[in-house]
């Protein structure tokens, strides 16, 4: 008799994803679906998809989904949660969506302690539109709209959202993770689970920031991208727990 040792999480839709080779969106989608399965909440979960590379996320999960306008996912999630507080609501957002055009929605959802969970993919670039500067692009980083590298005197500094949101009274669990290694992938899964658990326990706003790669727009191979993430992003965006009201490890 054959033993199943690996299968698609039930909450993940059985459809081909549109993501580029080496892109980490697929990994994070899978981790979310695994967590939904583990917590047994698929039937109560509503996801909110962003505008950006993950715009089709509404097709990739088997739970109910809403597609939000660019940056507005936390507001849309607020509306859903206030309509049906027993539902579990997550948004899935990139750096442009969450930290540029949707900064106000993000900050205020956090400060209201809106009982939702945000999965924030930070890959320091706008992917869908073809590689423009993101609010999280690093100083010196070459993008389509910073062809000579991001200059502080022109574009200012990259924004650290986890640190910023952790200062707000309303946030309950804020952690920055990465999917560059097996160890970190496992840690990301555990962190996403904890963020959902915070919501289930009605502790208020939770967010997991995931440092991610964009081989296509970084102009690197998937393996080189992982190195670039470790060498350049991690020093500026340190991994770790920035807020945890549950009294877990810091």
């Amino acid at each position: 008799m054959m033993e199943t040792i690996f299968e698609r999480p039930k909450a993940l839709a059985d459809v081909p994803f549109h993501y580029c080779p080496g892109c980490t969106h697929g990994i994070v989608h899978r981790l979310i679906a695994e967590v939904i399965d583990e917590l047994g909440i698929e039937g109560d979960t509503i996801g909110v998809a962003p505008v950006g590379c993950a715009v089709f996320a509404y097709n990739y999960f088997n739970c109910d989904m809403q597609e939000a306008a660019h940056g507005r996912a936390p507001a849309v999630a607020t509306g859903i949660k206030r309509a049906n507080p027993e539902n579990i609501i997550f948004t899935y957002q990139g750096d442009g969506d969450l930290a540029a055009i949707g900064t106000a929605e993000t900050v205020h959802a956090a400060t209201r302690s809106e009982n939702i969970t945000i999965i924030f993919l930070n890959n320091a670039i706008y992917g869908m539109t073809g590689g423009q500067m993101a609010p999280t692009s690093l100083v010196g980083q070459v993008t389509q709209t910073t062809p000579y590298g991001r200059k502080v005197e022109m574009q200012g500094y990259p924004i650290r959202m986890s640190e910023m949101l952790a200062t707000l009274e309303g946030s309950s669990f804020i952690k920055r993770c990465s999917v560059d290694s097996i160890k970190n992938i496992n840690d990301t899964r555990a962190s996403i689970k904890k963020a959902f658990q915070c919501q289930i326990d009605k502790k208020g706003f939770s967010m997991v920031e995931v440092l991610s790669t964009c081989p296509t727009n970084w102009g690197l191979s998937p393996a080189e991208s992982m190195d670039w993430l470790r060498d350049n992003m991690m020093p500026y965006y340190p991994l770790g727990v920035y807020k945890d009201v549950t009294g877990g490890d810091r």
């Binding site: 909110v48 939000a68 849309v76 509306g79 309509a83 929605e105």
Partner: peptide, 8 residues
């Protein structure tokens, strides 16, 4: 957008 979410 909250209206959008709640209406949805």
């Amino acid at each position: 957008n909250m209206v959008y979410g709640a209406a949805g």
